[in-house]
Computed example of a mutant assay.
Amino acid sequence: MLLSESKNFRWFFKLLNISITILVITLFSINFILTRGDVPQETVYTSNTPNLTRLDGVLPNMTYDDADRLNAYWTQTDLNGLIEPGCMNRTNGKVWCDFEEKGNDFKIAIFGNSLTFNHHKMFLQECRHRAYNVTMYSECGCEPLAALPDEDHCKRHLLDFVDFLESVKPDYAFIFTRFFATGSPFENNNTDLETDSTYKEMINQIHQFTPHIKKKLYILDAFPRTNSQYTLEVAKDLKNGRKLEEIYREIVQVDTYKLARFRTESIVKKCGSKCELIDYEPLLFNQTANRFEFFDSKGFLYFTGANHLSAHGMELVRPIFSELCNKLS
């Protein structure tokens, strides 16, 4: 490469991690759009909550075809479609940023892997009225509580998460994360948590987090992943009359989510009153039918192909945060 060409690309290497993540998602979305065909225009309408516009644009009279188009749209845009502008980076060399808000009550921190970035817009809509500052740290692919042994970069980020909370010193903190390391199989099938290296790492992280949080740490519990290769077929299969049981079985990847839940629920119990679980399973699991349901009756998906919550999924879980943030004291 010529010297002049090399200089032209120097800007890329100076981008913060979060900027690179957004750039990659944008390029992926453009490629997806070009290969999938037309992208539907986003439709929005006002919900029952004052001054709030729903994120999903789903209307009662929509059809399977509408679901097919919107499911594709949510996957095409993914994280890029749920960005709240105005997050200001104020710490050199760090990837966290601040939303300055008009509330008077609290300073709030939200952190985790890409699920944090996935949630931040909806979270702000429901909680910003209680906060004068919301600080976000989203580290793609790395959990705040544990890292896989062969992921050195995530091991380093465990320290970064501690530094983040030490710097922010929030009143309340929220962990939004998809499970990776926390769902690791137990060594030699030994389920004794006190000897489990992953659990011990999680406990160590909690012990380092809580002194920097004034009131409470909320932790999102684990839930199953979707079969990303199948998600965009759901609405078509519903329209064509495929059996519901077959669709439900194909879309859910149960894998090791129960191990992640077992560990997460155990650390929250051990943490005591300083920690509290947020659990989506009651919204996703039909106890009567004894199955997870990752889409509604019209085929609108709660997840994208990248295993983030879709805009429709955000509307499903929104009431949890509306109630929670209104009760903060």
Rank of each mutant, 00 (worst) to 15 (best):
R128E: 15
R128N: 13
K169W: 03
E139S: 13
V162F: 10
E201S: 15
R156P: 09
G141W: 05
R130A: 08
Q208L: 13
Q205F: 08
T191H: 07
G141C: 01
S184R: 10
A181Q: 04
Q125V: 03
F179E: 07
C142W: 08
T210N: 00
I206F: 02
F164H: 05
N133R: 12
F164D: 08
E143K: 03
S197I: 12
T195S: 06
E126A: 03
E187W: 11
F179S: 11
E151R: 13
L159F: 14
F164L: 07
A147P: 04
E139C: 13
D196Q: 00
T177V: 11
R130P: 06
D163C: 03
G141H: 02
Y172R: 06
A181C: 04
L159M: 15
Y132H: 12
E187G: 06
P149L: 06
E187I: 14
E151L: 10
A181N: 02
A147L: 00
D163V: 05
R156N: 14
F209D: 02
L165N: 10
D150A: 09
R130S: 07
S197P: 10
S184L: 13
Q205M: 09
P170L: 05
Y137N: 13
K200H: 09
R156G: 12
Q205A: 06
E139R: 13
